[in-house]
Design a protein around this nucleic acid. Structure first.
Length: 804
RNA sequence: UGGCCCGUCGUCUAAUGGCAGGACACCGGUCUUUGGAACCGGCGGUGGUGGUUCGAAUCCACCCGGGCCAACCA
């Protein structure tokens, strides 16, 4: 395994930063991630993000990514899904090599781990009913209570657990629970169930087992067994991390072991991925299946023709963070167009044909025109011939008798260029008795062969096919399945179908495609010029029938304009987009979820005084001495009540403060160090676990007060003390952080800094004065924080002003 | 309501005490044999109030808002 990072994209998201840090410090030999699907459904776009993250990190860091089926629930899992999932992952472009695993293969080892916990008294067999257990677990505000089985002996637990495995009991008769903490504020720690009895047939294990482990127990062990280093999951598993660590630590896995990190899952607007919610749509036949091209499943996207590269690009664009995100599907569309623009040959197809007769051409004349597959800005070679003759078909939407302003297509008496062919003029419009346009009679200008303009300016271009030569085809125009950004936001008493976009599928049954496509591979992705990207439907278009799916529309600046001009129409634009304009999406039905705060609430927030925290107030009630101290800090020491509140949050913190005060009597200064700085370096530790005491902090404050150390450098000293302990005087000496008092030395640094940033200096002199912070920062950096920032600032200003 | 997580342009995401940047979307322009692509420009943001600091999106406190957790699902 190489420790060199693979070349290519190196993201800077927080997970990659953690991995980078771990690799830098040599914590693991190599990065091992995993993608752990449960084989009970199809993968969707959200899984794609996780796949890109896990496999991407493995690739970038020269590690590996396991594919592990998390098949611990025999009642929902099937072989069909494990095969489909593997196909989807390969299609997306990822390879797990030899590292294919199944959680069910670990059942024996998991059982042994459970025995270890039972022997340690950390797990017990509970024979309560499911309802009893739930009821005894308490609520988020009330602690749980033990059931009467919690204190069974180790021997009895061992015996019962063995017999559970042996099949002596019925489903639900007993469970194995962790013996952790029934009062934990984290509900998952209230003696979670590790094993349950299910006499069910497992698709891989058959009837070998009748006890099955639950997620929280199984997942961390699976990771640990495989030597996973970074176990990435979505935000909602945040609460599960505590149990993840508890089990691994208590089973005996030592550092460096796997750890769990949570990132934000992908939410796509206008789509739903919930299996449960989508199932009725599939079963009712509204959707053609789990691979319906309108679905956000990988199977659906694949059938639709979205290239896997586009999905990977999309995942990159979306990024990874910890904020709950709702992504506009326009981003996926952009990624799709971006890939297809470079890779899809252009051909012509007419979706809604209108006859166009070239009256100055002989009936049997046929001219083969050469038409390049690529526009000039795509550096690819290749062309096909398209037959040009008397009777043509053009797009009905490309003709208007009464054109909207700015219309650049065919109008009575007007001219238009036929792509790759000739300029034609519309001489006559033939209609049926109802007034419907039947045919356009035009004359062409032979001097404009190949589409040259013949001196005309500002002329439009439309696509066409030869009526005689074109191939008949069915074209399916797909649009977003739902009409509102969050389809799961239901109207009162409504269901998902209320939010369906009625025009998510429009079928053009009598479309015509230029004849050249007959010779192409069936999986060719095309751009039908001016209408969008298409390919043959891999299911219904697999045989002789030409059935095309629209992968994505063209970006449509004209159609966008038309929205503002009622009565107009567009040939490309999605209907949902039009809808969005006419019916602004209702974000919440109740009106409670928006980001607007009522004026009253805002006013109240502004006027609110800082409140002592509930937790600290509670501590002071329990310990009257703390309350006395808080009062004294305010009355005698003159501290703000906020600072006094924080300082008296625990006895230890308050003691620490008093010890510091004994060394340095300026209460406000010491309090500030405690409240604002010390808490920052504690990193979740309790104050009594710090490797230094109050006296040291007091001395540090004294050093700053005496001018021995700048406040800035003192923060670095504090950080060093928090990490390694030590007396501040010694740390200052060791690190060489005494304050820089030499004015000429400071001036030298100031000159160096200004010389190093000539453009910024110019910008500053041109008026961008907030650049001063940059310069001060550079001086502080150059002096490792030992300069006096005020002096540096003054000197910088002097030189900056002098030079203007 | 107890605990945990999270608040940066409309959306997604950078900035790890020192220049608030990028992408999508939107608007305008150039170019164009696709109303595409490309190129140029514009719009637009640190939830609030205090505090610490020479300097705060970043550290501290409080408030507000959003999410997750009380399956023998994952």
């Amino acid at each position: 395994m190489s420790d060199k990072r693979a070349s290519g994209r190196t993201g800077t998201d927080f997970i990659r930063q953690i991995v980078t840090a771990h690799m830098g410090e040599g914590r693991y030999e190599g990065v091992v991630t995993r993608f752990p699907p449960e084989p009970n459904g199809y993968l969707h776009i959200g899984h794609a993000k996780s796949l890109c993250l896990n496999f991407g990190i493995a690739q970038e860091f020269g590690g590996r990514c396991h594919l592990r089926f998390d098949d611990t629930n025999p009642e929902t899992e099937e072989l069909e899904y494990v095969e489909a999932i593997q196909g989807d992952i390969r299609w997306l472009g990822f390879d797990w090599g030899d590292h294919l695993y199944f959680a069910s293969d670990y059942f024996e080892r998991m059982y042994e781990c459970a025995v270890v916990l039972v022997r340690k008294g950390l797990a017990y067999v509970d024979s309560s009913t499911e309802d009893e257990i739930r009821e005894a677990r308490g609520t988020v505000t009330e602690p749980g209570r033990p059931t009467r089985y919690r204190d069974r002996s180790v021997e009895e637990n061992l015996d019962l657990f063995r017999r559970m495995r042996a099949g002596e009991f019925a489903d639900g008769a007993h469970v194995l629970r962790g013996r952790i903490d029934l009062a934990s504020p984290n509900m998952l720690m209230r003696d979670p169930v590790f094993y349950r009895i299910r006499h069910a047939h497992h698709y891989r294990q058959g009837d070998a087992w009748c006890i099955y482990p639950l997620y929280d127990y199984a997942h961390c062990l699976e990771d640990a067994f495989e030597g996973v280093t970074h176990s990435l999951c979505t935000l909602e598993f945040d609460n599960n991390r505590e149990i993840y660590d508890w089990i691994l630590d208590n089973v005996g896995f030592e550092e460096p072991r796997t750890h769990q990190y949570e990132f934000n899952r992908l939410n796509l607007e206008y789509t739903v991925v919930s299996k449960r919610k989508l199932r009725p749509l599939v079963e009712s036949g509204y959707l053609a299946g789990w691979d319906d091209p309108r679905m956000a499943t990988l199977a659906g996207l694949r059938r639709r023709g979205v290239p896997p590269e586009a999905i990977r690009l999309f995942a990159d664009m979306v990024g990874v963070a910890k904020t709950e995100s709702w992504v506009d599907p326009g981003k996926l569309e952009f990624a799709t167009r971006d890939v297809l623009n470079r890779s899809a040959p252009r051909v012509m197809a007419v979706l809604d044909p209108l006859k166009l007769m070239i009256t100055n051409l002989d009936e049997d004349a046929v001219e083969d025109l050469e038409a390049p597959y690529w526009p000039e800005d795509i550096p690819r070679e290749g062309s096909r011939t398209v037959p040009f003759c008397r009777e043509l078909l053009v797009e009905r939407a490309d003709f208007a008798e009464d054109p909207p302003k700015g219309f650049r297509r065919l109008v009575p008496g007007g001219e238009v260029r036929l792509r790759h062919a000739y300029v034609v003029r519309c001489d006559e419009v033939v209609k049926d008795p109802e007034g419907r346009v039947l045919e356009l009679r035009c004359t062409y200008d032979p001097a404009t062969r190949g589409g040259t303009s013949g001196g005309r300016r500002g002329i439009g271009t439309i696509h066409w096919v030869s009526a005689r030569h074109a191939l008949q085809a069915e074209v399916r125009l797909y649009d977003r399945l739902f009409s509102i950004p969050d389809p799961e936001e239901l109207p009162d008493g409504g269901d998902l179908t209320d939010n369906l976009n009625p025009e998510s599928l429009v079928v053009m049954r009598d479309a015509r495609v230029e004849p050249s496509v007959a010779a192409d591979a069936a999986d060719t992705r095309y751009q039908f010029e001016r209408t969008g990207y298409f390919w043959r439907d891999p299911v219904d278009g697999a045989g002789d029938a030409l059935v095309f799916d629209r992968i994505v529309t063209m970006k449509d600046t004209w159609g966008r304009r038309l929205v503002a001009e009622p009565g107009s129409f567009s040939l490309r634009g999605g209907t949902a987009e039009l809808k969005m304009e006419t019916h602004p999406p209702v974000v919440t039905a109740t009106g409670t979820g928006g980001d607007d705060v009522s004026p009253e609430a805002r006013g109240a927030a502004q006027g609110a005084r800082p409140q002592p925290s509930r937790e600290r107030a509670g501590k002071r009630r329990a310990d009257p001495e703390l309350a006395v101290r808080m009062q004294r800090y305010v009355d005698e020491l003159g501290l703000s009540s906020e600072d006094a509140d924080v300082l008296t949050g625990t006895r230890a913190f308050s003691d620490f403060f008093e010890a510091a005060l004994a060394e340095h009597a300026e209460a406000a200064v010491v309090a500030s160090w405690m409240v604002n700085d010390l808490r920052g370096v504690m990193q979740g530790r309790a104050v009594e676990d710090l490797p230094f005491g109050g006296a040291e902090l007091g001395r540090l404050a004294g050093l700053v007060g005496a001018g021995t150390v700048s406040r800035r450098a003192a923060k670095d000293v504090l950080a060093e003390m928090a990490e390694k302990g030590g007396d501040p005087v010694a740390v200052v000496a060791r690190l060489g952080l005494e304050k820089l008092d030499d004015a000429s030395a400071l001036d030298a640094v100031v000159r160096e800094v200004l010389a190093a940033w000539p453009e910024k200096v110019a910008d500053f002199r041109a008026g961008k004065e907030n650049l001063l912070g940059l310069f001060v920062g550079e001086v502080m950096k150059a002096t490792r924080g030992t300069a006096d920032p005020k002096a540096a600032r003054a000197r910088l200003l002097e030189r900056l002003r002098a030079g203007s």
